[in-house]
Computed example of a mutant assay.
Amino acid sequence: MRSRLATLGLFAAGLSACAAGVTDPAPATTSAALRDQATAVQTTAPSEWVRGIDVSEARAAEAAGVKFRDLNGTIKPALQLVKDHQYGWVRVRLMIDSDGTYGLFQDLPYVKAVMKDAKARGLKVLLDLQYSHWWTDPGNQWTPARWKGQDLNTLAASVYAYTRDVIAQLRAQNTAPDMVQIGNEVNGGLLWDVGRSSDMGNFVKLSNAGADAVRDASGGRARMPPIMVHIAKTGDAAATVAWYQAFIAAGGWVDVIGLSYYPMWYGDFANLSASVKALRSAFPWARVYLAETAFYWSANQKEYAHLPYPQTPQGQLAYLRTLSPVVRSAGGSGIFYWGAFWSQSGRWLKAPDWTDDDASRRALFDDSARATPAIDGLN
């Protein structure tokens, strides 16, 4: 998602160069054992159809003065709107040493506050560990300054120590996540250049270090949340399955599969259905979620053409009402809407090199911060 927001290759300034204290991560597990482990952990994954919203921007927008409004114009806290519209889950990203520009406010104190708010309202949380200071996606997986220059073993130890501390802090405030993403849209791996997936062994060592840390900080496998591995390949079912086959063959830990689906980049609903069906067939033990999707309520600023519905509030609603049955019938287990609260960004978005704000055209709130009809599109 992020490379489509801006393909600038920018890096946040003023990052800490201090390396965190690290310990050795747990040793790698064999591929067969990990498959058994995945099947065991999968029993703790949510069995209900998951309806979720990514709320990563909401807290910062409210702090900047955005007042989100329900369909009838009533002002409400962002996460109360989530609850009132019958969403059971939120998703929030966690960055490392981001400087607050380009929409990347999500340091650990910010995320801890979001999770307190979510849990107090009875919402479950998918924690998206991005392991970078910058947007992560198939074209951007940049190592934060604190870990620059580390070799593979040291970097894996850093991932383990950082992740274990994050989960420990969240558990200490009684807001343990209900599902954890290790990386975001990790088609190309994470923590480049060491963790590029062109060397799947290196990538898996880093990814498994994060999963091991979630397990250990949670008090063991029986108490840990399921681990999501999330890529953006839904336009090609064979390539999507092949990616996970290679990841698992290299010993990669995955309990649930997360996909991005945006119709302007990843094909039509038939492509999506084929990908979900193929994944369920190849990995019957793994539930499949759309970790990201979105559609336009207003004309896009990127000149994307051939979209499946008009770029209007009703077109946005129609998109989501069509999407849910497609994912369900293919065997998927839920959908998270990306960028729902990306409204009135002039108040909170400091991004001087971006020439447009296309993401705001896909929010679930219009330019007056009033909910669009599509807020009920996943019902």
Rank of each mutant, 00 (worst) to 15 (best):
N140G: 04
L5T: 14
P226C: 03
Q314F: 09
W265S: 07
S360L: 07
V166K: 10
T29I: 13
E292W: 14
N174R: 14
A369V: 09
K112W: 07
L152I: 15
A38F: 11
H133V: 07
F269P: 07
I75R: 13
P177C: 14
L364G: 02
G331D: 11
A305D: 09
V241I: 09
G235S: 10
R4P: 05
R146M: 13
I231C: 05
G65K: 13
A176W: 13
P263M: 04
Q37T: 07
E62C: 05
P310E: 14
A294S: 15
L155Q: 01
R287Y: 04
Y87D: 08
S158T: 04
L94A: 08
Q37R: 13
F11G: 11
T143E: 02
L5S: 15
S345M: 08
A60K: 01
G14M: 00
R362E: 07
V194S: 02
P27N: 01
P226Y: 05
A242E: 07
A172P: 01
T23K: 04
A156S: 01
T74S: 10
G346E: 12
M1E: 05
R280W: 04
V125G: 06
H133E: 15
F203S: 06
N153A: 10
L129G: 04
L272I: 12
V276S: 03
D216I: 04
L155P: 01
A305M: 15
A113P: 14
Q169R: 08
A26W: 11
L317P: 15
W243A: 05
T136C: 09
D366M: 12
A118L: 14
G201L: 02
K124A: 14
V50P: 10
T234F: 07
A299V: 13
D36L: 13
T163N: 03
R51V: 14
Y304N: 15
G258D: 08
V204S: 06
K76G: 08
K76E: 10
Q311E: 10
T23S: 08
T372M: 02
Y319E: 06
D165V: 11
E303T: 09
Y160G: 02
Y319W: 02
L108H: 00
G195F: 05
L364W: 02
R221G: 15
L378E: 11
A213Q: 05
L81D: 00
V256A: 09
S31V: 12
T44H: 12
E185P: 01
R223M: 13
L129S: 10
A340C: 02
L349T: 03
W338R: 08
Y131K: 07
V66L: 09
A246L: 02
V186N: 10
G103Q: 02
G267Y: 09
I231Y: 10
S273Q: 06
F365V: 11
R171H: 06
L8I: 15
W342L: 06
G65T: 06
L5K: 13
G189D: 00
Y87R: 03
G9F: 11
W147M: 06
F269G: 06
